Simulated scan of single mutants.
Amino acid sequence: MHNCILDVGGLSIGHAHNEKVKTGVTVILPDTPAACSVDVRGGGPGTRETDTLGPDGLIDAVHAVVLSGGSVYGLAAADGVCAWLGHERRGYVPSPNPAVPVSPIVPSAILFDNANGGDKDWGITPPYRDLGLKAVQSASKQPFDQGAIGAGLGATAGLYSGGLGTASEVVGDVTIGAIIAANPVGSPYMPGTDCFWAWPYNRGAEFGSATPPRDYRWAEPTDTKLAFLKSAGQSTVIGAVALNAALTPKQLNRLAIMAQDGIAMSVAPAHTPLDGDTLFALSTGVNPVTSPVDLAALGAASARCVARALSRAVYFAQAKT
């Protein structure tokens, strides 16, 4: 176990970023098409192909999930991923005729990092298609660095550096993991302290060892982005949870809903009108979960993994600044 979404098995993760632009892309690549659902909780989301995951749709599995910086420009990262998947003949097969291209199903979500000081003078060639292609080509089953990497490079969390983080947990015989690109409006720290809101879920000082002062009292936070976002803008937390059990689309939707609680467990305020909080849930296993009680336990674990992954994203990003 590496305390990583890759502990789930059946997945590869790829990253690409551009230091000059201060942005990046992360790709979640299942070994085989994976059942997937999504929950969107923020008021300013940016997504692609999430409607495909609806309960009444034709499609019941995805070939990749893309997390990207760049706001609306970042949605083009999925173009590069689709091109690579299509070339590999990995996609929905609309016709048995081999001359008809397959249709890769690649839902994606973006975060707003366009005001972080990077060079965004890209003319008519934003870098995201190329970043998406590089990220999927680099996909690996090896544990990866956290913090300023992939979709987390250039992110901010409140007034702090944001980043990309991951965490995993075992519930019975099921492993569940999360990968989070943390770029929220709210702060991950309790006001006036260096203690993460998610400190009760900390395992082995995975994001430091700070705990609240004994006489701690809540105070009005001064380290969120709210005061700096009077004009139109967007922040967000985007990411995914995955588990090595066979869940139905309906069960995965409930898992994604419960996983969103992890954002509220680790950031305050969360799910604001300025955030685009979007989480995907993927299933890579073969053993079904039939008990609602078991599903509830997995949902609770998914929320903890999200909270820990988000805190680790910020912790490792701060360590490198």
Rank of each mutant, 00 (worst) to 15 (best):
G132E: 03
L279V: 14
Y315N: 01
T248H: 12
Y128K: 10
R312L: 01
V21D: 07
T26Q: 02
L310N: 08
C4I: 01
P55D: 15
L6G: 09
P55G: 14
V293C: 05
V100F: 03
D130V: 06
G86A: 02
A281L: 01
K320Y: 01
T47E: 08
S95C: 02
A307E: 08
N244C: 09
S266R: 06
N287Y: 04
H271C: 04
P55T: 14
F196T: 07
T290N: 07
H17K: 03
G69S: 00
A148D: 01
A61S: 15
T26V: 02
D51G: 08
L85C: 03
K20L: 05
D113T: 14
S291M: 08
L310F: 09
G262E: 01
I257T: 04
P101C: 07
S187M: 06
P55H: 11
P94R: 13
S108T: 14
G186M: 12
V241P: 09
W197K: 01
A182Q: 09
A182R: 06
E88V: 07
V136Q: 06
N244R: 13
P33M: 13
D277Y: 08
Q234N: 15
A232G: 15
Q260R: 07
S302C: 11
V40N: 05
H87Y: 07
E220V: 13
G262T: 09
K120F: 13
S209C: 01
G69L: 02
D79H: 10
V27A: 00
P249G: 15
Q318V: 03
L295E: 10
V106F: 14
K22R: 15
D51I: 11
G132S: 05
H2A: 00
Y201A: 12
I176A: 09
C305R: 04
A270M: 03
V267H: 11
P200I: 09
A78K: 01
I28H: 10
L29N: 04
